[in-house]
Computed example of a mutant assay.
Amino acid sequence: HALVRLLDSMRHPDGRIAVEGFYDEVMELTPEERAQLAAIPFDEEAYKRELGVEALFGEPGYTPLERTTVRPTLEINGIWGGFQGEGTKTVLPSQAHAKISCRLVPHQTPGRVLESIRQHIAQHTPPGVRVEVHTHEHGTPAYLIPADHPGLQAARDVLKALYGVEPLYTRMGGSVPVCSMFLAHLGVYTVTFAFGLHDERTHSPNEFFRLSSFKRAQEAYGCLLERLAQG
């Protein structure tokens, strides 16, 4: 019960994260950025069917696409404790465990977010309960390349030539830590250029990649290198 209460305290009923200071460094989207995301085709009903849910839930004031791409998150990855075998056993567990993670957005500092979570846990731990916090990684700052960066514009030109339509700008909820490292230590931006599609189940046991995308990627990378060489 204590662990469930503690985890529940981290989020308001409407979906907004309740950890004090969590949003302090978050930069609000500009009208232009929201317009770019709104231009991306998104079928909410199909998305709900894919997830197997009847309704979508999350931070108020943002669309489902914005919540999954440009807003920070705090989620429970796993929770366990006590007897879990077959049948019943009426013994109260002396320990319970949970794993949480956060997706950060540009300008958020991993260390500062971690410290805010530690403080929240200390302030909301029920009397008589001892909590231990273990961190598995130090975290990685979110990476964002300016929309007008020459490298990104080169990628845009290549994609437009290959597909015959104007590319749309979006962000991704995943992370590639080396991009932030290159920017922090070398002062250079990284253009990510990939051709995996939404339904190819990236990182899952049944991940796959279409041969048609592979062939198009071969052509695209050659064109991109040529385009970058032109300056």
Results as ranks from 00 to 15, higher is better:
H1Y: 06
A2K: 03
L3R: 08
D8G: 11
D8S: 11
I17Y: 01
Y23Q: 07
E32M: 08
R34Q: 13
L37K: 12
I40T: 00
D43S: 03
D43C: 00
E45C: 05
V53M: 06
R67G: 02
L74D: 02
E75F: 01
N77P: 14
N77E: 11
G78T: 11
I79M: 15
I79V: 15
Q84L: 12
G87V: 01
V91S: 10
A98W: 12
S101M: 08
G111Y: 00
G111Q: 12
L114E: 11
S116T: 14
I121V: 15
A122M: 09
H124A: 06
T125H: 02
E132T: 15
V133E: 14
H134L: 14
D148V: 10
P150N: 06
G151F: 06
L152Q: 13
V165G: 00
P167T: 01
Y169N: 09
R171K: 11
M172S: 13
M172Y: 08
G173M: 06
G173D: 08
G174D: 06
G174Q: 06
P177C: 11
L183N: 07
F195D: 04
H198R: 15
E200P: 09
H203A: 12
P205D: 04
N206H: 14
F209Q: 07
S213W: 07
F214W: 12
F214L: 15
A217W: 05
Y221E: 06
G222T: 11
C223G: 13
E226W: 13
Q230G: 09
